[in-house]
Computed example of a mutant assay.
Amino acid sequence: MTMHQIGFVLEQALGHLTHSKNLQSHAQLDPEIHAHWALVEFEAEGLSQRIPIYNSNWSVRAGLRAHRLLSNIARATTLDALFFHTQVPAVLAQHWLRRIPSIVSLDATPMQYDQLGEFYQHRTGAPSIESIKWRLNRDCYRAAKRLVVWAEWTKHSLVTDYGIDKGKIIVVPPGVTVREWLRPKPRSPLDGAIKILFVGGDLERKGGRLLIEAFRALRRPQLELHLVTKTVVPNEPGIFVHSNMAPNSRELIELYHQCDIFALPTFGDCLPMVLSEAGAAGLATVSTNLAGIPEIVQDRRTGLLVPPGDPAALTETLRTLLDNPELRIELGARAVQHVSNSYDAEKNAIRLFDLLKSVSSKQNRTEH
């Protein structure tokens, strides 16, 4: 058996934290991989808060932190391959990509992120700065042996915006451990109160306030809105706020199982991982038709899509699901099948690890 020494450089921000934890969990199950973890923290704390550029530029901070972490690992072992997620810590660490066979994983290209930027408090720079940023990212993509993307939407941007050969790009979405999220027994349309679930730390960006507005318009007996969020929400009849639920926790999974509809009318997202959680739990889902979302919430097949920022469309779409329990159950059943086929974290982790072993210098030495 060949043992591959693989370094994982993982961004620790937003939804990437859950993806990171899933990779760490599943890497332990592959006997051919000895994983070395370089977890790149987002926050600038202590003295680093006072250093110009470093304290305000995530790409600079991530690149320098990745370099330091990789240097520590390289002093202790000889790495056969590297896996970067996202490209942010890889852009200023390209000498590592040239030294060690590497895969760069990303949920969105910088140009796509710029399009969603207003919802992430992100602004584009002067044209000269944007040109430098484009070249650095293009060179990073070229230096990688393979590129892994979360959605066909991202692959399209790499090909059309950065001129990358589509043959080196593989779509491997993140996901959930489906067997842990499956509901023990099917939903019944006669289960009592209808419960709508929202999960999102940033209530504003994820469309939570828009959802509250739609809930008020729909208010009827035995209708509940459950919000899993860190944002403070004033008390209101029919609205229940869950502020202390940990990702992948038993309490969170049980809440998914207790609800009937999942709603994420987000203004700015690439491919929210909560949508795969909702699908695995068999929930009829309402979300917005932007970025990679239509690939997981397939309109009128596994869920329903609305335009972002359209309260009337959101209200009417939710009304359709409230009035049609059979449609809710049908959409939820197809969502389970779709997520099981394409967004199962165990299956997709195996795909990633097999891909890493295929580019590993140890594998190539063995073949030659």
Rank of each mutant, 00 (worst) to 15 (best):
Gln5Glu: 15
Phe8His: 11
Gln12Lys: 12
Gln12Asp: 14
Thr18Trp: 00
His19Ala: 02
Ser20Leu: 11
Ala35Lys: 09
Trp37Cys: 08
Ala38His: 11
Glu41Val: 12
Phe42Asn: 10
Glu43Trp: 13
Asn57Trp: 12
Ala62Leu: 03
Gly63Glu: 11
Leu64His: 09
Leu70Gly: 08
Ile73Gln: 09
Ala74Ile: 13
Thr77Trp: 15
Ala81Cys: 11
Ala81Val: 07
Val88Thr: 06
Pro89Cys: 13
Pro89Asp: 12
Leu92Gly: 04
Ala93Cys: 15
Ser102Val: 11
Ser102Gln: 12
Val104His: 05
Thr109Asp: 03
Leu116Ser: 09
Glu118Phe: 13
Tyr120Trp: 10
Gln121Glu: 14
Ala126Lys: 10
Ser128Ile: 13
Ile129Ser: 07
Ser131Val: 08
Trp134Asp: 00
Trp134Ile: 01
Asn137Ala: 08
Cys140Leu: 07
Ala144Asn: 04
Arg146Ala: 05
Arg146Thr: 04
Leu147Pro: 04
Leu158Cys: 11
Thr160Ala: 10
Asp165Trp: 06
Lys166Pro: 00
Val171Asn: 00
Pro173Trp: 04
Pro174Phe: 05
Val176His: 02
Pro186Tyr: 06
Ala193Tyr: 04
Ile194Pro: 02
Phe198Ala: 04
Gly201Ala: 12
Arg205Phe: 09
Leu210Cys: 05
Leu211Pro: 02
Phe215Val: 05
Ala217Phe: 03
Leu227Gly: 03
Leu227Val: 08
Thr229Ser: 06
Thr231Pro: 09
Val232Phe: 04
Pro234Trp: 03
Ile239Ser: 02
Val241Ile: 13
Pro247Ala: 08
Glu251Thr: 07
Glu254Trp: 08
Gln258Ser: 12
Thr266Tyr: 09
Pro272Gly: 06
Glu277Trp: 05
Ala281Phe: 02
Ala284Pro: 03
Gly292Gln: 08
Arg300Phe: 05
Arg300Asp: 10
Leu304Val: 13
Leu305Phe: 00
Val306Gln: 04
Ala313Cys: 11
Leu318Ile: 15
Arg319Gln: 15
Thr320Ile: 13
Leu321Gly: 06
Leu322Asp: 11
Pro325Asn: 12
Glu326Phe: 06
Arg328Glu: 10
Glu330Gln: 14
Gly332Thr: 05
Arg334Asn: 14
Arg334Met: 10
Arg334Trp: 05
Arg334Lys: 13
Gln337Cys: 03
Gln337Glu: 15
Ala345Arg: 02
Ala349Thr: 01
